[in-house]
Structures are given as structure tokens and as C-alpha cells.
Design a protein around this nucleic acid. Structure first.
Lengths: 233, 233
DNA sequence: CAGTGGTCTAGACCACCAG
DNA sequence: TGGTGGTCTAGACCACTGC
């Protein structure tokens, strides 16, 4: 490191984090402003700004105009989970991926779904169920409803060999999504498909997507035994 | 909007996203470079840079020197979950929070824990179990091990009224964390505390934290019936 | 009103890497 | 080796908000 080296926003982030960790600036306390720090570190204010902005995004500090920047007392750390396609997730684990369509039909729209997605009285839906296997072991059972009003050119034949998951990604962009995770008990239909006893705990994901304000699809995904969703930071 | 208004990186992000959504730039295709876009939008390159950098962070595009920027074919969208303190989570829901210590002791370190945390043969641990209630209903059962080598000044008396969760946040900063979620079956000890039948599905979180390379704590958190972790984007 | 963060600019140099 | 993204600078003006 020579004197001519420019100071990077990464160095500044690390410095600030170290000072927070070592309680140089106590939780809840105001820390120096951008101008002061840029003098101390001998760099431009923009550089300090980027460092502090990223720290704020990551939940370490709280920034407010006029008041200044405060060290976050209860760091609401946020965990990021990557949500890849099932196929990609399975292939990344080194296993062979296999897809199978279980059923596909166009039933009358159930009331609960109408309520959940905010569908109009005449909106039709497609209902399909399919399986994703990893090395021929059941990995995920997918139970999906698709709004025909938003996705008109759709037909069960589309899903003979391609998962709806992937078909939708390629055909219908979405702008909003809601995901939730929970633990449910295997019922008769998914216990059978996942090769589990009825009542067994199943890691379950629900996902709704919209294009602007128009609902596209509602999906429930039931994962096979022992599934874990993990992240590090 | 007047001609004199400066172009914001937000506008540019929105524009680019719209073009990706509308397949103006197809998935997998190279999109124009920063210089070209800055001319088109009539702004500085730095502004385009910030817009594109954020889109890259969010997983929409893939940037490489020399090659240029590519629209991501399989958008590995990442879901961010906020991981607040249990107390904060409960209070935010409008419920009254209550904490209760179930047990606290210093047993011989179990081998599985030694392996899991990479503890040395002489490292001692503290084991404690506690409950978090929301409006007096069981919300979360916490089963935690703390490494005394990393956290020397620790004693069961610290946790009579303050949850270990909160104590650690205030006393011991961490640098690394690993979190994983799964669905498990209630066993006899947690079924009783959570007021659930044995075998009932339980949403379960495991968390390990380190200070640099030294393990601090391993915790398992079992959530009461119907718990959901939700996010939107 | 005044102080702090938020953003944009114009220009510069650097780092990486495909051809 | 040239082209593209990555970053820093110095300066400017704006926007929000506590006093």
C-alpha cells in the first residue's frame, strides 16, 4: 500500500464496520458525517457516500437528512435467499433433473382462489400439478393455478414436457411477487407423490406473481423430506 | 416533467427493466454499453452506471468487462427476508411479548456440537432453552448453545429476564452467520412447550454465528403453529 | 432556516479479458 | 491491445427535516 493508492469505498466500509463492531461508535449513537469522514480518510465525499449507502442498505446504519447517520441498535439483518428455477437448483446439486406432469385441467375457479388472487367473476383458470425429481427421487411437488385472463395463449399441451415454472419465466414477465414459507403436514395427495407418510412435516413455499396489478399465477410447492433452505452472510 | 429536469438513475432503471420485460432486449442478449445509453438518455455515464449496477445486484443483468452487459436468461431473483429480534417481530405484530427461561446449564460439550461448530477438545459451552410468547401464546421455542471460549463473561443469571438472543446482540458482535430453514416434526420436549401434538409440523430455523473464525453460538428456533415467513418484491 | 444526506456531472484512470 | 465496466474526484445543486 503506497500513499498514491486511492482509498476505495470497500476500505471505508471495512473501517466503519470495524468501528461499529468495536463499539468505537456505540449502537444508537450518531457517527460523523460524510464530509468529516471524507477528510479523515482523505477521499472524496462521493466515496464515503457509497460506502455508507451500502452499509445502510445492509441494515447496519440508519441515515437521515439533517440528523445524520446513526449506528443501528437492533441490526435488522436481512438474509438473502436465491430463488432459482427448480431445475437449476437440482442440476446445481449435481443430480439429474426430471419433470413429470401429474394433471392438468380447467376447472371452475374455486372461491378461495378467486379471493386470494382478486379474480373477477368470469376469470378462468388453469390448474396443474407436477413433480420435479432429483436423480429420480421426489424433490418437489408443484400445485399451480394460472390466470387465463393474464395468460391467454395457454394450453395443457404446453406442459407435457416443460415445467410451468419454466414456461412462465420464458413467456410471461412478472413485476411483483409474494413468497412465503411454512411447515405443513403432508396430505394424502402430496404424501403419495413425495413418497412420505401422511402427516409428515413438509417444507412448503407459496408464491403469487403479478404483472403490474394483474395476477398471473398462484403456486404451492411442497418439498421432499429433509429439504433445507440455507444462506450465509 | 420539463427539459431541464435531470435524469435520475431510477428513471433509467425503470426504462431498462421495461425494455427487458417487453423483450426489447431478449434474455441472453447483449444490451447497449454505458456510453451509448448515457447518450441516449442524455445523462452522465456515472448515472447509467449506477442504474445498471443496481440491476446487476438485483440479478436482472450480468455485467462483464470487455464483453458488455447481458440480460439474464434465468433471472435468479433473490428474496430478502428481514431477520429481526423475536421480541421486535412480536411487538411489531401488535402482540405483547413475554420471555421465559426454561433451563440453563453447562453440560459436557456433545460431540455433534463440537463437530458442528468446530470446537476444540477443551472448549466449554453453555446450553439454554427458553420460550418467547406473543400475547401469552407460545410463539417460539429457542434451544441455544453458546461457546464460552468466545464469550467468556457469561452466566446463567444473565438470562433470567433477558433473552440470549438480545443479550448476544448487545454484548457480542458477529461477523459471519449461517441460517437455514426447514420443516421438522415436534418432539416431546418442544411439542409440550409449544402446546402442539407430538409429530406436528414445526417451522424450524437454525442459526450459527461467528466472530471472524471463532464460533459464537448455535441456535435452533422452533416456531408455533401456523408460522409463516413472508416477503414481497 | 440551516445542516445533512441524495444525486448528478464531466472527466479521468484503472482492471479485466476476448480476440 | 483495445473495448467495456469499475471506481474515484471535485464540484454543484437539490431534498428533506429538526430546530
Amino acid at each position: 500500500m503506497s500513499l498514491s493508492d486511492k482509498v476505495s469505498f470497500r476500505d471505508i466500509k471495512a473501517q466503519i464496520l470495524a468501528r461499529i463492531r468495536d463499539r468505537v461508535w456505540a449502537p444508537g449513537a450518531i457517527m460523523p458525517g460524510e464530509v468529516e469522514l471524507s477528510h479523515e480518510f482523505g477521499c472524496a465525499r462521493a466515496t464515503v457516500n457509497r460506502a455508507m449507502r451500502e452499509l445502510a442498505d445492509e441494515g447496519f446504519i440508519d441515515r437521515r437528512r439533517k440528523t445524520g447517520t446513526r449506528v443501528n441498535a437492533n441490526p435488522i439483518r436481512q438474509a438473502k435467499f436465491e430463488i432459482p428455477l427448480v431445475r437449476v437448483e437440482i442440476e446445481a446439486s449435481g443430480a439429474a433433473y426430471r419433470y413429470a406432469l401429474v394433471s392438468c385441467e380447467s376447472p371452475p375457479t374455486p372461491d378461495w382462489l378467486r379471493a386470494r388472487l382478486g379474480l373477477g367473476p368470469d376469470d378462468k383458470v388453469l390448474h396443474l400439478q407436477c413433480m420435479h425429481y432429483a436423480d429420480n427421487a421426489p424433490f418437489q411437488f408443484e400445485d399451480r393455478w394460472i390466470n387465463k385472463a393474464t395468460v391467454p395463449d395457454i394450453d395443457c399441451s404446453d406442459f407435457e414436457t416443460l415445467s410451468p415454472n419454466e414456461w412462465l419465466v420464458n413467456q410471461v414477465p412478472f413485476t411483483e411477487a409474494e413468497i412465503s414459507f411454512s411447515a405443513t403436514a403432508a396430505n394424502e395427495s402430496n404424501a403419495d407423490l413425495l413418497a412420505l407418510p401422511v402427516g409428515e412435516p413438509v417444507f412448503t413455499a407459496e408464491r403469487i406473481t403479478w404483472l403490474k396489478t394483474r395476477p398471473i399465477t398462484f403456486a404451492r410447492m411442497f418439498f421432499g423430506r429433509g429439504y433445507r433452505m440455507t444462506t450465509r452472510f
